[in-house]
C-alpha cells in the first residue's frame, strides 16, 4: 500500500504540488497543500510533487 503524506509543519504554501499534480493535491483557504482523496496514486505525479517542494514537506512511499 503506497503512502503519500504532507508534513503540515513544513508546508508554507508554495503551491508547487497542487500546480504540478492537481490529481493528488489541492489548496486550502491559506494556499497550503491538502491531499485529494484518491484510490490510486499516480507515482509519477507523486514524485514530481516530492521533488519540487521547496520545503521538503511531501513524502511518498510507493
Amino acid at each position: 500500500m503506497s503512502r503519500l503524506e504532507i508534513d503540515q509543519e513544513r508546508c508554507t504554501g508554495h503551491g508547487r504540488c497542487y500546480s504540478l499534480a492537481p490529481s493528488l493535491f489541492d489548496s486550502d483557504e491559506f494556499g497550503h497543500a491538502v491531499l485529494v482523496p484518491t484510490h490510486e496514486i499516480n507515482e509519477t505525479d507523486a514524485w514530481t510533487a516530492v521533488q519540487n517542494c521547496p520545503e521538503g514537506a511531501i513524502s511518498f512511499e510507493p
Binding site: G13, G15, Y18, S19, S27, E29, F30, G31, H32
Partner: peptide, 12 residues
C-alpha cells in the same frame, strides 16, 4: 499574521 494575510493571496 500570515494566517490573516495568506487567504487574501491564495491561489483560489
Amino acid at each position: 499574521w500570515r494566517r490573516l494575510l495568506d487567504p487574501f493571496f491564495s491561489p483560489r
